[in-house]
Nucleic acid binder design. Structure first.
Lengths: 104, 104
DNA sequence: CCTGTATATTCGGATTTCCGAATTTAATGG
DNA sequence: CCATTAAATTCGGAAATCCGAATATACAGG
């Protein structure tokens, strides 16, 4: 995970939103992301694959659902970047439990 | 300057290097950047224009030279992002005064 | 003026990135 | 089995990005 790779991962609106929201919630399933992002499921899934392959996100699969989280092995500087980016964007999307899609 | 815009600015190897080096030195002229980046002058100039237009860099022109610096009006969270990114990349390019190109 | 140096801009094409549509895989429950 | 739901993948084309080459602009010094 180089700084350039991280920046490229975050240089797309959908991916940036995904990472920020996953960071806020600790763990999110794909259907929650699809609902709140308003983007078609294949699009979200493609971006998730990308974020997984570059080591930014990790998955946990439970039955038919997939739960994404920040990868534990992320270096400290990367976590610092995400924290700094959350300041202006993150606060705007506080997702209360009762606003969840409830799909899973 | 939104987080997405910042990430896009930094999602290119040349631009990332430019910003990190400018941040380290406070101010750098174009010819210094051209020399140390090993990229053709039009390429560097194009990236500098981009970074200027999005508000990341500011210019000071003195005679035939142009000196670039981080824009003073950058929000705190953006400065934090740059600081976090400097940890892994920045330390690798400490440019001592006697390693300057000396062109200006 | 004329030359040389520093920087910026333009233009076309090549490459990369992104997305829509359709399909596939996998797991669950009847 | 079959239908349904969640998620991933594939494919082709559209759109955005990047770069090389050439040119333009601006300034300094003779």
């Amino acid at each position: 995970m180089t700084p350039l790779q991280l920046c490229k991962c975050l240089a797309d609106e959908t991916r940036l939103k995904i990472v920020m929201r996953v960071r806020q919630h600790g763990e999110l399933c794909v259907c929650d992301l699809v609902d709140t992002l308003g983007q078609p499921q294949p699009t979200v899934s493609r971006h998730l694959s990308q974020l997984r392959e570059c080591g930014l996100l990790a998955v946990r699969k439970d039955a038919q659902w997939a739960y994404y989280r920040l990868h534990e092995g992320l270096p400290a500087w990367a976590m610092d970047v995400l924290e700094a980016l959350q300041a202006p964007v993150g606060k705007q999307f506080p997702l209360k439990p009762d606003q969840r899609s409830g799909c899973c």
